[in-house]
Design a protein around this nucleic acid. Structure first.
Lengths: 200, 200
DNA sequence: TCATATAATGACTATATAGTCAGTGACCTA
DNA sequence: TAGGTCACTGACTATATAGTCATTATATGA
């Protein structure tokens, strides 16, 4: 059955709301955004939001799910062409950089978001973890760092990156934390990792 | 001039409010706590809070300043007796562990707190940074890790620890993240650090 | 063409909660 | 001991804001 104009416009409006919410969240933070902020930015009335979402929480969950998936997909795509761990880390940071303001608010607020949003957040991490393990074992095997579990190496990388994003107001008040620090982050991490380690 | 009973009781009440707020914050999180939660837990009326604090924000700032200082002092004390970096990291984690629920909420919420509270949070980090640099240079000098700035090594440690605390709901749902992971955290970090590095 | 369905509207309601203030009784001091 | 002071009370106010719903205007399709 063909789509009527109405159905099409409804979809467009919802699309508009999701994207507008993403932009407002990126700028103001998620928990600091009011329904009216989004309505106003999208140029629709307050009530329209609730035509498309059952509640603000539901809307947050949907926005985070949608853009979380975009982030994961993009990271996935960039990671495909990574031969080395160095490439992968750079791909990871590139993926983040494309969504940096929003991603940063997820880093800052993820524990305070509705449950579904936190789940989406965690699946982004999982996607990265998958590629990290893959590339790491291809490059080094898994016995080169006896006593340090692979997941710990992954957690160190994530911890480092998120630490910089979470404290972005100190590290790069203009906002481009990744652009400014990606080289030193990757370089330092790899030097530490490879200290005394032989490649496969 | 001697203190009157009144003055004394006023001080006691304020003390009680600060400590009660600390406890409620530790349990419920800071931004999720209402004035009435604290009043009820302390067994005073709602209005009493505002006899002692000009606003909820001011109260939060004062609580975080007070307990932030306690944490810093305690860490300082524990770090004094640290001969090696290993000792220092353990001291650091011990210091955190004594305040773990509250400290965890600072990790999770610090970017959303009133400005003064964030300042207090940052000074805790500074205190740790100071000891870290001191012990590190004593143990290794500062040329053993060419190409990795000392502050980056510090940020990696902090990033790792905070990553575990921030995701404590995944790592240790019962809450004792540090107790459960301190050995592996210290061990992994030091192994990574010392890979191929000679001591001074 | 017209009766119906529905996306959008925005005024309205319900609720949560920070902060105020007049009142009270215990303490203070002269 | 008497009048004043002040910590404390809790009902009250002000405000912000999520969510509702009757109404409107437009598209649908018989």
């Amino acid at each position: 059955m063909r789509k009527t104009v109405r159905e099409l416009q409804k979809e467009q409006t919802k699309e508009l709301l999701l994207q507008t919410a993403y932009e407002v969240f990126s700028k103001k933070g998620i928990m600091n955004t009011r329904v009216s902020d989004i309505a106003q930015a999208a140029g629709v009335s307050h009530g329209t939001i609730f035509v498309h979402f059952s509640s603000l929480e539901a809307m947050i969950e949907e926005v985070v799910a949608l853009y979380g998936q975009k982030i994961a997909m993009r990271t996935h795509a960039l990671a495909q062409s990574s031969g080395s761990l160095s490439d992968l880390l750079r791909a990871h940071l590139c993926g983040i950089m494309e969504f940096e303001p929003f991603y940063t608010h997820l880093v800052i607020e993820n524990r305070l978001l509705p449950p579904g949003a936190r789940d989406s957040w965690i699946s982004i991490q999982s996607a990265v973890s998958f590629h990290f393990s893959l590339v790491y074992e291809r490059e080094f095997g898994h016995n080169d760092r006896p006593g340090i579990p692979l997941h710990m190496l992954f957690n160190m990388w994530m911890g480092l990156v998120h630490y910089y994003l979470q404290n972005g107001d100190l590290f790069a008040p203009e906002g481009n934390v990744i652009g400014r620090y990606q080289d030193i982050l990757i370089d330092s991490y790899l030097k530490l990792l490879k200290g005394g380690m032989t490649e496969k």
